[in-house]
Nucleic acid binder design. Sequence first.
DNA 1: ATGGTTTTGACAATCATTATCAACAGGGCT
DNA 2: AGCCCTGTTGATAATGATTGTCAAAACCAT
Lengths: 133, 133
Amino acid sequence: MKRNTWQREAVRGALDGNDGFVSAQGLHSALHAAGSPIGLATVYRALADLAVTGEADSLQSPEGESLYRACSTDEHHHHLICRNCGLTVEIEADAVETWAKDVAAQNGFTGAAHVVDVFGLCAECTAKFAASA
Amino acid sequence: MKRNTWQREAVRGALDGNDGFVSAQGLHSALHAAGSPIGLATVYRALADLAVTGEADSLQSPEGESLYRACSTDEHHHHLICRNCGLTVEIEADAVETWAKDVAAQNGFTGAAHVVDVFGLCAECTAKFAASA
DNA sequence: ATGGTTTTGACAATCATTATCAACAGGGCT
DNA sequence: AGCCCTGTTGATAATGATTGTCAAAACCAT
């Protein structure tokens, strides 16, 4: 049976209150900073659960950390992520969906899953960099 | 200055002789098994170098390991990877390239880089699974 | 062969993540 | 309400990949 604990709520809430992706470690620190005595292992477990139930989305940063984000929809979608400030835009990619499926099929692959994420500099950060350069 | 050492050649050779992606750890084990006394740190360094010079391609497995592969071309391309046997097919994806660029531009992002890889079961493994199911 | 510099490699350090396991708490049941 | 069973927690240890360290060895031009 699945029980309702304040810890799980805390993690869910922390995710909701965040615009971009957060690492498990970061989320734990944030919760601690906010005074919550939640344990690190619990944060990992809660995040894994949320990811499984589809309430959260997970991806890997180029540095190898696992990042999580509250998902507004439970549909399949991808992300456009600012590599500087972490701003995230959800993007739809029907074209890519079908492309991935086609390519897989053409090569005899089944059960195709794909990793499609775009990293870049958002407008704001681009301006910031241009100014400082 | 860049020096030519047998260790670097060994890593390059081991990569060339491999069809799919290999982890740094795996490559090191393989070299050791083949009798090479090469050090683990050296393998990591060599792989990083090859990745930078474009002679090798790197991506992250869903488990978070860094995987490397000798690249037949120095052009930008993506991969279709069997999640069971590691078979890798290089795929071209002009459509995706432009899509990624467009999406980024539409949202004011610059310097867009993208991670596009497709994981699935190759025909062989699909058959194997079907038989055992 | 020599010298200056890069590279190597054994090992320690780091970092994220997972496992352990005893103490604890949720919630259905009486 | 009180109890008990079972899922959950959390401090800490364990794991596993990767990176840093630094003296010794190798490379290459001279």
